[in-house]
């Protein structure tokens, strides 16, 4: 299966944006080789600012540039963006609603061998809680590229969550991305899986596993976690059983966002695939996904449990 990392697509698309728009500025904190902003740095050295290992300074500097009509794409690992520089993002960027696009790579446990200290599993929760912030987690390289064009045009701050490892392609070049619009990848009436990021591919596989067992399961790519696509959630809730899947803590992320919306507008039985209130650890990305039950098998198992609950209610 053909695979590509979302961070690679990010680096390439930044170069495209740089050619299209003069006001695109990129900042990085000594991780440009890993975040792939080095591609932009090579093409547009005058519009790339290396900020050194100083994430808080980097985010607030981007705020200053944005106050002078620049559109800043700021990259580092998710843990250092959403974690280390949380309050700079909140006060210097989101509060004044500035055009700073926080493109955080190496999110989730698939950071791998670097271990729990480097694996952001609470970043969606942190960013989602900030007013004015838009939160997007692309599922593959094509969605990453398409989303970036939309992100450039969007007025205001965006948190864009990218991963380290190569992930399967889900979309083709005809795909159209719209901020706030979930994408239904599979029809189904027995249950709905709402996934984000790398878990979208697992959700599709889970639906295939369940189809073999005679269940028709809807699959959604909820790339935009904020603002949430309420219509998609209402449609998913019609199945009566929703499972969310994310490479993130089950506290505060996609699952919480969907549960909040479902509870208020369209109640359904729910369960959550994600990190169960624990930190990650060292290992290969594949081992870690297995170790923390971020797999198609576990999504399928969880769907069966929720469908059972629904049936016995």
């Amino acid at each position: 299966m053909l695979k590509k990392a979302t961070r690679d697509a990010y680096g390439e698309t930044l170069v495209e944006l740089g050619h299209l728009y003069d006001n695109v500025i990129v900042l990085d904190a000594d991780l440009s080789k890993s975040t792939k902003t080095e591609l932009f740095a090579k093409e547009f050295p005058e519009r790339f600012f290396q900020m050194g290992i100083a994430e808080q300074d980097m985010l607030a500097t981007a705020a200053g540039l944005a106050l002078c009509d620049k559109v800043c794409f700021v990259s580092t690992f998710a843990i250092f963006a959403a974690g280390r520089a949380f309050e700079q993002i909140r006060n210097s960027i989101a509060y004044p609603k500035l055009n700073v696009k926080i493109c955080a790579t190496h999110a989730g446990v698939t950071v791998g061998e670097d271990g729990g200290s480097h694996q952001a599993i609470e970043d969606i929760a942190l960013m989602r809680a900030i007013p004015n912030m838009t939160v997007i987690v692309p599922a593959d390289a094509i969605e990453t590229a398409k989303a970036l064009h939309a992100i450039y045009k969007h007025e205001g701050p965006v948190y864009f969550r990218l991963g380290r490892p190569a992930v399967p392609f889900i979309y083709n070049d005809d795909f159209e991305f719209k901020i706030g619009k979930a994408n239904k990848l599979r029809e189904g009436t027995d249950a709905a899986i709402i996934a984000t990021g790398i878990m979208v591919a697992c959700a599709i596989d889970a639906a295939k596993i369940l189809a073999d067992k005679g269940l028709n399961v809807q699959v959604w790519d909820m790339a935009t976690i904020k603002p949430l696509d309420l219509e998609a959630i209402k449609e998913a809730a019609k199945t009566g059983a929703i499972v969310t899947a994310e490479e993130h803590s089950v506290i505060g992320g996609l699952g919480s966002a969907v549960a909040e919306a479902s509870a208020e507008y369209a109640p359904a039985f729910m369960s959550f695939v994600g990190l169960k209130d624990c930190f990650g650890q060292s290992g290969t990305p594949e081992e870690l996904l297995e170790a923390y039950n971020l797999t198609a098998d576990n999504i399928a198992k969880t769907v069966l449990e929720v469908v059972d609950k629904k049936s016995s209610s």
Partner: peptide, 12 residues
């Protein structure tokens, strides 16, 4: 945070 913001304006 302010001096970083000022720097950003100066870079621009």
């Amino acid at each position: 945070q302010g001096l970083s913001i000022a720097n950003g304006m100066a870079l621009a």
